[in-house]
Design a protein around this nucleic acid. Sequence first.
DNA 1: GTGGTCTAGACCACT
DNA 2: GTGGTCTAGACCACC
Lengths: 134, 134, 134, 134
Amino acid sequence: MSADTFFSINTGSTEPIYRQLIEQVRRRVASGQLSAGQEIPSVRELAQALAVHPMTISKAYSMLEAEGLLERRRGLAMRVAARHERAQPAADRIELLRPTLEHAAAEVQQLGLPSSKALALFKEILASHESGEP
Amino acid sequence: MSADTFFSINTGSTEPIYRQLIEQVRRRVASGQLSAGQEIPSVRELAQALAVHPMTISKAYSMLEAEGLLERRRGLAMRVAARHERAQPAADRIELLRPTLEHAAAEVQQLGLPSSKALALFKEILASHESGEP
Amino acid sequence: MSADTFFSINTGSTEPIYRQLIEQVRRRVASGQLSAGQEIPSVRELAQALAVHPMTISKAYSMLEAEGLLERRRGLAMRVAARHERAQPAADRIELLRPTLEHAAAEVQQLGLPSSKALALFKEILASHESGEP
Amino acid sequence: MSADTFFSINTGSTEPIYRQLIEQVRRRVASGQLSAGQEIPSVRELAQALAVHPMTISKAYSMLEAEGLLERRRGLAMRVAARHERAQPAADRIELLRPTLEHAAAEVQQLGLPSSKALALFKEILASHESGEP
DNA sequence: GTGGTCTAGACCACT
DNA sequence: GTGGTCTAGACCACC
């Protein structure tokens, strides 16, 4: 797996880097983009690709292991745990998106924007993401 | 202004509380929901309403004052600064929403969800917010 | 709570320090020696008492928080989470001891010792612990 | 000697595998279950039986050789060194058990369990080990 | 090569 | 004062 394209972090955000990684792994496992047995990038490799201290990556991986999403294998790269055999159904995955959209909707209201404008912008952004370039 | 309904914070988030408040004030001013001369809740009042340390509120207000958005008046409640006479045009305000929706779109992609489902959920959430209850 | 007498670590062991701490907290919560709402020693205090780097303590506390056993409160000492209102019944607690005694029994067998001698030694050690001095 | 039943390892433990093996050999020699001249399983055989990398087994054997417990013979299986002619007396062997039981007693105390319950459980476990099935 | 643990120490957010 | 995050870097266990 290409480490530098698969994960992305935003160092400017107040969201800690290690937690950004955790969230991304969770979502990719939920969607099946990462499936049982698949290896994730090594700590050192990802650390270099993201220009981050290896321990930061290690912390994220450790917590994902404690959570049961990843499996540690002495001396080998970590991989997605066996019990995550298949992606969650879309109906469940969409619920993982809800808090984020709730938050966005609160901003819309505070900005006093009409729902139609917000929806149009979201549609435009989704289209540009789909076509390849974020 | 009713302190407890106007601002809302999420103590579970990694986003510092004072920054959550700053962002909310900025958006309310941009939208004209808070307009020049309008008084904002006192530090103590808001601190109690949100169950937060008064210093946290004070810090947010101080930074908004440094930014020129609020005015401090000895012995009186702070108020929105005069130079923020009118709301920003909607075309500008919608740009303030863009980063949030960009982030949401990245989540959609990582979750492997179709744009249509994401849009439908956003529409549903916006409608429920508009109708009163978030 | 007196930090230096409540927790003890063995730096010689292969068991990582942070995990020794986690196990001890778990057992003390299970037994009710630590009960809901009770504060645990601060990171810095315990680090100094045990002559260990603060981050090592912090790591243990973080994992206990992720596990739901401890609660974090911004700016305040961590405390035992509310949902651990009461000690587990003795019947459950004794099961937490089983793996350790299984391991000890395997050693007894490998050493070719009669059960009676092993039991006698265990009894003697338990008595000395009870009377105060480990 | 049947490699797979004689040694057992716990890959989940933080105790390094090679050290688990060393400890087991030491105890078997102390008890006379392994006596001078007796052959131990080959590196490859044991590695396969335990699903462990051969180098891990090799490391354990090398350290036992450096310690004088095992003898290496070119082209032949390693065997227990001649100077370990006879088992240590039971009085000495029981002391090898003490640290493990000290540790168990500390757990008993932290779990707030009465000594009688702990002793009863240990007795039960010892009996089941003796009767064949651990 | 893999991950894990720990130290030393800086800086941040919050009470 | 509280905990959190991150960097820099050493050393260990294992493949």
